[in-house]
Nucleic acid binder design. Structure first.
Length: 298
DNA sequence: GGAGAGTCTACGTTTACATCA
DNA sequence: GCTGATGTAAACGTAGACTCT
């Protein structure tokens, strides 16, 4: 499988990379027992591509940008969005990921064809009925959900104003203020279509959202929420993979460090035993620069 | 250039539902 | 079959960034 990891989303865009913080901390702890490297572990984003460990598996799907002829990871669009500063993910750094991926966003319209800041009425489907494929409806009301309003036929819950994306719901006000929220369990078919779409674009513009919602008999808001949650899941999974990979990197370097320490000790011992011979000694084994320390030396 | 509105996404949380012991 | 614990995912609320007027 082709390895493709992008810098992540707004977390880095906002400069609050939790991953970086957490992994830096864990690396510092992990290497604390090895006194040879006093320099603190650099931020993940600055780790040079020197790790020789095999690339971690890529759990998330990739998508093909036909226009650009590239594969993209859906874990994030930051690296592809010209408007977002590209922050290299740790794995990307370790494997010297293609820098040309930066600045390309398959989910956004090309410059000049700016993505419409459509009012959500554009993608609204006021009459959108509930999904016939839903598996939920028969169970509704289990937890004291009040009867649905007369106008509502489907299983999905109309959404409350809901902070951010909340603009595109016609029947706002029911969520937090009014009643219970009923959860739609997407059918397998619906989920499959969503996944397929997600593999192509991990974000949707209003038109895509509306089209997908119409195709699946869902509300645009439901599609939007699904994509939000899907991005979160992808990111979480990628974080786990990155973490595991960095742990292996750390273990490898720790072992290398031990080996070098042993070698130093042996050489010192030899020097003590035969001080006049050391000039003719064969050179020590090749020194492998620790990537984390190397950063500080650059 | 700054203010405000509108929109978007990430993130954290809540909660409905499913599964299992 | 019932029940409680637990996991998963849909839905929600908020904050920050961006664009446009």
């Amino acid at each position: 499988m082709e390895m493709m990891v992008n810098a992540t989303d707004q977390g880095q865009r906002y400069g609050d990379s939790h991953l970086g913080l957490g992994l830096s901390l864990s690396l510092s702890i992990a290497t604390a027992a090895v006194p040879v490297e006093p320099a603190p572990a650099p931020p993940i984003s600055s780790i040079p591509p020197v790790c020789s460990l095999p690339a971690p598996p890529l759990p998330q799907p990739q998508w093909w940008n036909g226009a650009a002829g590239l594969f993209f990871s859906p874990s994030s669009d930051a690296g592809m969005d010209p408007s977002k500063p590209a922050a290299p993910a740790p794995v990307a750094a370790c494997h010297d990921m293609m820098p040309f991926l930066r600045g390309i966003d398959v989910n956004r319209a090309p410059p000049g064809e700016s993505r419409p800041r459509a009012s959500c009425s554009e993608d609204e489907e006021p009459g959108a009925s509930s999904s016939p494929n839903s598996t939920l409806s028969s169970l509704s009301g289990k937890r004291g959900a009040p009867a649905r309003s007369s106008g509502e036929v489907g299983p999905h819950t109309p959404r409350a104003a809901g902070g951010g994306g909340g603009s595109d719901d016609e029947d706002s006000g029911s969520g937090s203020g009014g009643g219970s929220r009923k959860k739609l369990r997407l059918s397998k078919d619906q989920a499959a279509v969503m996944e397929e779409s997600f593999n192509e674009h991990n974000t949707l513009n209003p038109k895509q959202k509306a089209a997908l919602a119409k195709q699946l008999n869902l509300k645009p808001r439901q599609v939007e929420v699904w994509f939000q949650n899907r991005r979160a899941r992808t990111k979480l999974k990628q974080t786990e993979v990155d973490c595991e990979f960095l742990k292996r990197c750390c273990e490898s370097l720790t072992e290398e460090n031990r080996r070098l320490q042993r070698e130093v000790a042996e050489l010192r011992a030899l020097k003590l035993v035969a001080p006049h011979h050391h000039a003719r000694m064969p050179p020590p084994t090749t020194l492998t620069m620790c990537p984390y320390t190397a950063v500080g030396l650059i």
